[in-house]
């Protein structure tokens, strides 16, 4: 079994405690994680403001990587 990519991503953000909830809510690959906003974090149960900010920043970086790869 390969480790889930979302778990690896969250581990790099030191937020791996949310990995199970991410996957349970259908956020199980980085494509879907790119679309995460506040309502998604509400559903997943990420409530701490600094954790939300860290995830928002990481989501932005995912999108930027995408834009760079396309260009």
């Amino acid at each position: 079994m390969c480790t889930n990519i979302v778990y690896e991503w969250l581990k790099a953000l030191q937020l791996s405690q949310y990995a199970e909830s991410f996957v349970d809510n259908g956020y199980d690959d980085l494509e879907v994680c790119k679309q995460i906003g506040d309502p998604d974090l509400d559903a997943i149960g990420v409530l701490a403001p600094q954790h939300r900010r860290r995830i928002h920043d990481a989501v932005r970086r995912l999108r930027e990587q995408d834009a760079n790869a396309a260009g």
Binding site: F22, N25, G26, Y27, V32, Q35, D40, A43, I44
Partner: peptide, 12 residues
């Protein structure tokens, strides 16, 4: 069902 993760889960 507006959350993309939930859409994905249900459709999958």
């Amino acid at each position: 069902v507006t959350l993309v993760g939930h859409q994905k889960k249900i459709m999958n």
